[in-house]
Amino acid sequence: MIDFKTYFELLNLYSDYAMVCDSVDWEHWPDFFVEDGTYRLQPRENHEQGLPLCLLALESKAMIRDRVYGVKETMYHDPYYQRHIVSTPRVMKVERDLSGERIHSEANYTVVRTKLDGESTVFNVGLYRDVIVRTPEGLKLQSRMCIYDSEMIPNSIIYPI
């Protein structure tokens, strides 16, 4: 499938992504995606039934940057911290052609949310289903589908999962 060096880069991609989200370093979140990269947040039920409806569907890096702007400048909400716990990624398949290599991988995730005046609670649990490509800057997400397990989500999802 892939060599150890590539798998180590994949591990770093997953852990660096979580660290950027957990450290509220929103300006760097778009850097994990290629220019035409997509980010989607979809309930498991819709995904399993092949239904396209997503809670959030960002269709390019420009839209992802716009989401960062919205999180930082226009959305008003009770601030909270989040902490990602991500399983070791599993490589599902690797495609190689003239355009390069595409790694299809997935990992389970749990996001714990802590409100400034409250206790920590499980906020969102699901599966990342990713397509990752090699760029001159290293591995980047071509697509990230966050498939969350519960139809019930508290309030709204502001920060990236």
Rank of each mutant, 00 (worst) to 15 (best):
G118K: 10
K61L: 02
I85S: 02
M92P: 00
W26M: 07
V133M: 11
I132T: 13
L55I: 01
T110K: 11
V86E: 04
E45Q: 12
K72T: 15
W26C: 03
S99Y: 10
V71E: 01
A107T: 08
G37V: 06
P30G: 12
K93R: 15
V122T: 12
P89R: 00
G138I: 07
V91I: 14
D36T: 12
R134Y: 02
E106K: 13
D22Q: 01
V133F: 04
C146S: 15
R83V: 12
S99E: 12
A57P: 01
V112D: 00
Q82G: 02
D117K: 08
K93W: 05
D36N: 14
Q42M: 07
V94Y: 05
Y14D: 08
Q49D: 11
R44G: 00
E95P: 06
D78M: 00
D149H: 15
E101F: 01
D117Y: 07
H84K: 02
G37P: 12
G118A: 10
K93T: 13
Y148S: 01
E119W: 13
P30E: 11
R40S: 13
I103S: 02
L127D: 10
L58Y: 02
R40I: 05
I85A: 05
G126M: 01
L53W: 10
Y81K: 04
R113I: 05
P52S: 14
L41V: 14
D149C: 02
V71H: 02
P154M: 14
D149Q: 09
E48H: 08
S99C: 13
A18E: 07
I64N: 02
G50P: 08
R144W: 00
R144G: 03
D31W: 04
L141E: 05
I132Q: 14
V24C: 15
R134M: 15
V133E: 15
R65W: 03
A57Q: 10
P79V: 05
Q142P: 04
E106L: 09
C54N: 04
V111G: 08
S105H: 05
S143V: 12
L53A: 09
